[in-house]
Design a protein around this nucleic acid. Structure first.
Lengths: 193, 193
DNA sequence: TCAATTTTGGACCGATGAGTCCGTAATTAC
DNA sequence: GTAATTACGGACTCATCGGTCCAAAATTGA
């Protein structure tokens, strides 16, 4: 009955996400979004509504993907490598040209959260989920003997969550992989002893 | 010989700083800067050159003030209250209407640093200064017996620097003073034991 | 008082921001 | 083939962006 859509909506969303993730909300122009998605202006507006709606859709896509990945990494296998891998996602760079993107939720905690309740709520939720997930993982490690710290698992998880944005900041400030790894090992050493 | 300037340059700079601190670079418009400083456009450009130059001047003013304050707080008096006070500067809110501004250097690590070498360099320098200063303070605490952790002072300092942006993110995400304080105490508990 | 100098307000600029709209092309069901 | 429907490109709007420029007002030293 109707002409079929020529582009892949999901694909376009991911392309837009890439730009928002790297540059943030304000610094991203419509023109860049059109270039990245390959859509025409009318298609983009018909599909996503507005810049802000597109941003929120992209952000939620990101959050969903990351949550899934975090569960996948943390809820199976030996605890210590799992936690290590979890943090490595943070500064695994797509291309080595520029600093890592870091975590988009943390980026948005800084950029939009203070002035935007919807974003703020999402950031809080992400931090909370991360704490819960890490708590379960650390409990698992303590039970298996892989982690020897006698502190409550939740306290240790809180410490990791607290340090998470620090690693992100270092990554975005251009610290080397070596330095990031050193900091990470230092942090994780607090899971023992 | 010449007509004297009607406004206080330094005062105007501080007003501009307030806006940049709260909203970041991109989200701050010239119009807002004019309103905040009370200057006319020509005066602002004659005095500060451009939006970017004004930003950098404001940023450097901020960094200088903060460094001075940090030294003042950390280099005298009992170590533990000193460190406590140091972190409290982070979420001491000017007015309780909105979330705390946090640390401008951290904000800029997220917003501009990835794409702007000049900003990046300043951020790295700030993190480094902070680590050095905290190292000295912790050493002092270990010598006086106020801090009982056997870990190297520099390692403990690195942990605090790593957690610093985390507290900032929580502050900007709207966490309560109570929650921030709990996290801070949890963090500082690692200075003992 | 007058000349020299400098600040100041506001008009003005081109570029770009996000967003709207419509004519045209393409695809489908019948 | 044709009618109905939808996607698409691009022209268009209006506001705001950062930034320039100039004429007028104000203050100073002499």
């Amino acid at each position: 009955m109707s002409r079929p859509q020529e582009f892949d909506t999901s694909e376009a969303l991911y392309q837009a996400l890439g730009v928002f993730w790297r540059k943030g909300y304000e610094a991203t122009s419509l023109t860049e979004l059109l270039t990245a998605t390959g859509l025409s202006k009318s298609s983009l507006y018909a599909t996503f509504g507005s810049k802000r709606e597109l941003f929120m859709a992209a952000f939620d896509t990101y959050r969903q993907d990351r949550a899934r990945a975090a569960h996948h990494v943390l809820e199976q296998g030996p605890v210590r490598p799992a936690i290590d891998a979890f943090f490595h996602q943070l500064f695994a760079n797509v291309n080595d040209a520029e600093p890592a993107f870091g975590c988009m939720s943390i980026n948005q905690a800084v950029e939009l959260a203070p002035h935007d309740a919807e974003v703020r709520q999402r950031v809080v939720q992400d931090l909370q989920s991360m704490e819960n997930l890490l708590t379960r993982t650390i409990e698992r490690g303590q039970q298996s003997g892989a982690l020897t710290s006698p502190r409550p698992a939740r306290d240790l998880a809180k410490l990791l969550v607290l340090a998470f944005p620090g690693l992100q900041v270092m990554a975005r400030a251009g610290y080397s992989t070596q330095q990031l790894n050193d900091s990470l090992q230092l942090l994780l050493s607090h899971l023992d002893g």
